[in-house]
Simulated assay, not measured.
Amino acid sequence: MSTANILSAIRIGVLGFGGLGQAAAKVLAAKQEMVLVAAADQKGYAYAAEGLNTQECIAIYQSQGSVGYLEPVGTLTNQSVHDLIEIAQPVDGYFLALPNLPNDFIPSVAKEFIKSGWRGVLVDAIKRTTAVEQLLAMKEELQAAGITYMTGCGATPGLLTAAAALAAQSYAEIHQVEITFGVGIANWEAYRATVREDIGHIPGYTVETARAMTDAEVEALLDKTNGVLTLINMEHADDVMLEVAGICDRDRVTVGGVVDTRNPKKPLSTNVKVTGRTFEGKISTHTFTLGDETSMAANVCGPAFGYLKAGKQLHQRGIYGIFTAAEIMPQFVR
C-alpha cells in the first residue's frame, strides 16, 4: 500500500489472533480502504503505524505463540489489550475477534475502552443473547465515551440477521425467522474458542463447562460424535437483535446448525428463512442461502469490516452508542 493510501485508510486493530483474528488479518491485507496497524493476543501485541505485515504476524504467532515476539514492533505483556489501548497510538477501529467465553468477557473489554478515554469504532462477532444484552445496557456509557459500537456483526448474528431484516420488508407480520448454518473446518484446533463456544450450546453442557474443558476432553467429545456437533435452538443474539429492530418478538427466531470439525466441506448450506404474512393476507417464505464455497471466516470477517466502515461513517458524524447488524447497513470495503 502506498504512503498516500495508508494516510487515508482506516487504521484497524484486531484483538484476538486465533483462527478468526488471523483470517481477519488476511482479509485486511487485500483491502485499500483499511490497514491493519495493531494486533493483540493473550501474551502480547504488535503496533506499526505504517501497517503490520500479515504474513509475518501469522508466522510469528504460529511459531512462537504471540505477535508480541515480532521485532521491532512487538511487545510481550500479560495484559495485552489494556496495554495496547494505553499506548494511545492512533487506531480508528478495533475488531474484537475474541472468545465469547465467559459471557461478560467482551462487555468487560468494552468497559476497558470506555475507561481509557479512547474514541473510535468497535465491532464484534459476538454470539450469545445475554452477552449482547449486556452491551446494549452500556449504550449511554458508550455514547458519553465517544465510542460507536457495532455488535453482532459476524455471520450469525450479522450477515444472516441483516438478510432477515431486509427480507422482513415484504411482510406485514413476521411469523418465523429460522437460521440454519453449516460450518466445515479441517482441524478444530484452528478455531478452539469457536468450537468450545459451540460445545456450550449442546444439551448437558454450559458455557462454564465448555470453557473449563481441556483440549484432550474436547477431542474425546469430538471422537464420540465423529467430529460433528449438532446444535439446536441455540442462545443466539439474532433474536434480541431482530426484536430491538422492531421486526418480530425474539421467540419467533430460532438458530441451529451443524459443525463438522474434521472436514472443510460444509455439512449443509447456511441459510435464513423468513416466513410472514403479506398485506394481501398471503403466507410466504423468503430464503437467503450462502454459497457453500464461502468459509466461516469469509462470512464473519467480511461483514465485520463492512460494519466497521459503516460505524466509522457514523462516528465521523458524531453518532455514538451501540448499534446492531439488524439496524445499520454495512458498507463494502474496497
Score class of each variant (00 low, 15 high):
residue 293 E to I: 11
residue 128 R to H: 12
residue 71 E to G: 02
residue 142 L to R: 02
residue 212 A to N: 12
residue 55 Q to K: 15
residue 301 C to N: 04
residue 113 F to H: 01
residue 218 V to D: 15
residue 322 I to R: 04
residue 124 D to M: 05
residue 203 P to V: 09
residue 296 M to D: 00
residue 69 Y to L: 04
residue 134 Q to Y: 07
residue 232 I to D: 09
residue 326 A to V: 06
residue 300 V to N: 03
residue 301 C to S: 03
residue 252 R to T: 10
residue 17 F to N: 04
residue 6 I to F: 11
residue 57 C to D: 05
residue 158 G to P: 06
residue 24 A to K: 12
residue 314 L to E: 03
residue 147 I to S: 03
residue 26 K to I: 05
residue 153 C to D: 11
residue 154 G to V: 07
residue 146 G to A: 04
residue 144 A to Y: 00
residue 311 G to T: 01
residue 57 C to F: 01
residue 227 G to I: 05
residue 168 A to V: 09
residue 85 I to E: 00
residue 331 Q to H: 15
residue 191 Y to S: 09
residue 30 A to N: 09
residue 186 A to E: 08
residue 130 T to P: 13
residue 305 F to Q: 06
residue 237 A to K: 00
residue 263 N to W: 04
residue 241 M to Y: 12
residue 300 V to M: 06
residue 276 G to A: 06
residue 258 V to D: 04
residue 121 V to K: 00
residue 312 K to Q: 09
residue 79 Q to M: 05
residue 151 T to A: 11
residue 234 M to G: 06
residue 114 I to M: 08
residue 79 Q to V: 00
residue 47 Y to C: 14
residue 147 I to Q: 03
residue 146 G to R: 00
residue 245 A to S: 11
residue 104 D to R: 10
residue 276 G to C: 04
residue 282 K to C: 06
residue 280 E to L: 15
residue 108 S to N: 08
residue 120 G to N: 06
residue 98 L to P: 14
residue 109 V to T: 12
residue 207 V to A: 13
residue 48 A to R: 15
residue 274 V to R: 14
residue 328 I to H: 07
residue 134 Q to C: 10
residue 243 E to C: 03
residue 138 M to N: 08
residue 116 S to Q: 07
residue 68 G to M: 03
residue 52 L to D: 12
residue 181 F to M: 05
residue 302 G to T: 10
residue 328 I to N: 08
residue 75 T to Y: 03
residue 116 S to M: 10
residue 126 I to S: 13
residue 39 A to G: 14
residue 252 R to M: 11
residue 203 P to N: 10
residue 154 G to T: 05
residue 273 K to C: 15
residue 100 N to M: 06
residue 64 Q to K: 09
residue 319 I to W: 01
residue 223 D to Q: 15
residue 238 D to R: 02
residue 218 V to C: 09
residue 285 T to R: 14
residue 57 C to M: 11
residue 180 T to K: 13
residue 285 T to A: 08
residue 78 N to I: 04
residue 139 K to P: 02
residue 332 F to D: 04
residue 167 A to T: 13
residue 265 K to E: 12
residue 313 Q to E: 15
residue 77 T to A: 01
residue 90 P to D: 11
